[in-house]
Write a protein that binds this DNA or RNA. Sequence first.
DNA 1: ATTTTAAATGCAACTGTATTGCTTTTATAT
DNA 2: ATATAAAAGCAATACAGTTGCATTTAAAAT
Lengths: 145, 145
Amino acid sequence: MENKTERFEKLLVKNGLKRTAPRLQVLEILSGRDSATSQPYLEQVMGKDADRVTLYRVLQAFEEKGIIHKVLDQQGTANYAICSDGCSAHEHHDEHVHFNCDNCHKIYCLDAVKIPALKVPAGFKVEHLNLIATGVCANCADKVN
Amino acid sequence: MENKTERFEKLLVKNGLKRTAPRLQVLEILSGRDSATSQPYLEQVMGKDADRVTLYRVLQAFEEKGIIHKVLDQQGTANYAICSDGCSAHEHHDEHVHFNCDNCHKIYCLDAVKIPALKVPAGFKVEHLNLIATGVCANCADKVN
DNA sequence: ATTTTAAATGCAACTGTATTGCTTTTATAT
DNA sequence: ATATAAAAGCAATACAGTTGCATTTAAAAT
């Protein structure tokens, strides 16, 4: 079995992106997390390994190539999670529900929960659906009484 | 028939808020719009009639009293729209779908379109649902051919 | 009508997220 | 080994939103 770094390197090359240290490190971090990740978080854990601006640009490049997808938290901060298979630069297939925990503020991708189709008023043309549920996540259920 | 300003004044008093010029003016503006409104927009149209901070505080007070509800646009900026009847400080009943136009960037409240109930994984407890559809609105349909 | 007072406004400074322009470095192709 | 286009680094800036504090004012009390 090939190791993780090799997989990430192939992923970059496949998308026409150079194999650089900041990019590999971001992929490493994102893949090790169970919830969506923001630039400020990456900046904090990576310290001087990467410039603030580099992180923003890495995230933007990954999103454009369909490697990660963006979801805003309740403060309006962008958070990113690795896309499930089937996403590409041309088309994102990430129309699953996101869950925003009021307690720990993590954002989970509920990949199994799809967003139902919607009937909108005449004239409106829906391109994408974005459903964010807020509440208490499974990990916090105990702590919150 | 009582005039609009009288209605707004009663609305403020009913919610224990003083009848001030900035508040009345914000209600006036919000009621005259067909889409959700941001602080920066209010600041722009009101000019020196109200301080930036005052507008933020007015919007916050209105939201707490259930007079308006908040919806984030795709950039994460807060936008506000007047609540339909039935909202109060204790409970918001604004779980309708919001529509974010990719062309004019307006945010519409589709009051008629309710968010369907959702089945989430065990352990997660859903408190609120927030569904934003993006695409092209009825007004822009022609322009975008 | 005048005074009192709690609430609201205005102003200045600040925080945090994100972006832009430009220079330097580096991965990859030649 | 060299050339070059892409990426990273750095500085400055934009923009939404917040906080602390002094001043003003709506509404209540006298």
